[in-house]
Each structure stands twice: as structure tokens, then as C-alpha cells.
């Protein structure tokens, strides 16, 4: 049982993983990918319990990643962890099938609130 963390920044993948642990989600394995295309390939090959993805990435953006997943028939829960939390982006995320959008900076409480329902 694993969570897939997708971000082109190594340090942000590290911070997201650390925050998951701090929020109490420490029983899951963490798999990583460094762009949307690698994330899509990984999520289709071995479906995770949850995808946590950045939005703005090279190769394939987070929203393209999510659309690709849904087009392939995947219903895996998907949440964005991104530096942009505008109403417009939240609307786009929700329309594309995202469960939530966490804007940076975030805390362990933010993760707990957003992920608890999805991982319950």
C-alpha cells in the first residue's frame, strides 16, 4: 500500500514525505516520480492508494497527469500540493477530478485535514 508523491523538486518530495509522517500517515510506503509523465506511468503500472502531485512541472503538468489518469479509467484519489491555491486553480482541479488542493506553505495539520477522509 503506497502513496505516490510527484514533484520535480527533490526537496519538495522530501518535505511532502516528512509531512505525511508528521501527520500520522506513517504506515504507507512512499513512491516518488519527478514529473507528471513519470507519475502517470507509475500510477498506471502500480496503482497507489493516493497521488499527491505538484501542478507546475516539466514534461507533463499535474493537471495533464490527472486528466491522463482519468482518461485511462483510473479512479485513484488525487490531490494537488502546489504553490498556487487560487480559486481558479481549485476550480480546475476539482473539475478534473482532484479530491483536494493543498497550497504551500502547509503544515502537518493541513495534510491531516485533507487526507484523512481519502485514506480512511
Amino acid at each position: 500500500m503506497h502513496i505516490l508523491v510527484v514533484d520535480d523538486s527533490k526537496v519538495m518530495r522530501s518535505i511532502v514525505t516528512r509531512t505525511l509522517r508528521q501527520a500520522g500517515f506513517d504506515s504507507y510506503d512512499i513512491h516518488e516520480a519527478d514529473n507528471g509523465r513519470a507519475g502517470l506511468d507509475a500510477a498506471l503500472a502500480q496503482p497507489p492508494l493516493l497521488v499527491l502531485s505538484d501542478w507546475n512541472m516539466p514534461e507533463m503538468s499535474g493537471i495533464e497527469f490527472l486528466t491522463g489518469l482519468r482518461d485511462a479509467g483510473s479512479t485513484v484519489p488525487f490531490g494537488f500540493v502546489t504553490s498556487e491555491g487560487s480559486d481558479e486553480m481549485r476550480g480546475r482541479a476539482e473539475s478534473a477530478g482532484a479530491s483536494f488542493l493543498i497550497a504551500k506553505p502547509f503544515t502537518a495539520d493541513t495534510f491531516r485535514d485533507a487526507l484523512s477522509e481519502v485514506l480512511s
Binding site: V11, N56, S83, G85, S86, A103
Partner: peptide, 27 residues
């Protein structure tokens, strides 16, 4: 370099959120 890039991405994303929409943030 990765950490500095991520820091400016976070700060830039926050500033973008204060500005008129729609707009796009670069890498």
C-alpha cells in the same frame, strides 16, 4: 539549486495568488 528553486516557486506562487487572474507561473 533545487531548494532555492523551490523556495522562489513557493514565494512566487503566493504572490501570483494576490494578483489578477488568470495567469501562469513559470518553472
Amino acid at each position: 539549486v533545487d531548494a532555492v528553486g523551490e523556495l522562489v516557486n513557493m514565494v512566487g506562487g503566493g504572490i501570483k495568488g494576490m494578483l489578477p487572474e488568470p495567469s501562469r507561473l513559470s518553472l
